[in-house]
Amino acid sequence: MEITIDIEDPMPLFTQLVEQIKSAIANNNIKPGDSLPSIRQLANDLELNSKTVAKAYKLLERDLVIQSKGYRGTFVHPDAIVNSKMDLNAEVLATLNQAISACKTAGVTDSEIRIAFSSAMNSKNN
């Protein structure tokens, strides 16, 4: 199974990597439990910075599409087929839309919503 990225595509390189790996899983080209190349190997093969590949792998791990097992390597997550079809960004957007709708129904203004959101983000970061 090969993946191809285009360095002149407006889509960020790490996003291209994430999408291609998810697509490979969804199309059954790689299966749960299959091992994936190391960050260094994939970065060298694609002539990318290893941080780009590391970022893609981190996002895939967050989405439970892959799992890192230390020195043993990186593997496709057992639930990758289901998880690769989930769009986390769409999920976040849907949740926020729901919350915003609820606030507007309660009569909260746009600027009050923005201030509350910013305050919530700051308290999470602290």
Binding site: E2, I3, I5, I7, Q41
Partner: peptide, 11 residues
Amino acid sequence: STSRSAGLAPR
């Protein structure tokens, strides 16, 4: 070429 390919199998 702006396109780059790689295999998804570890070596």
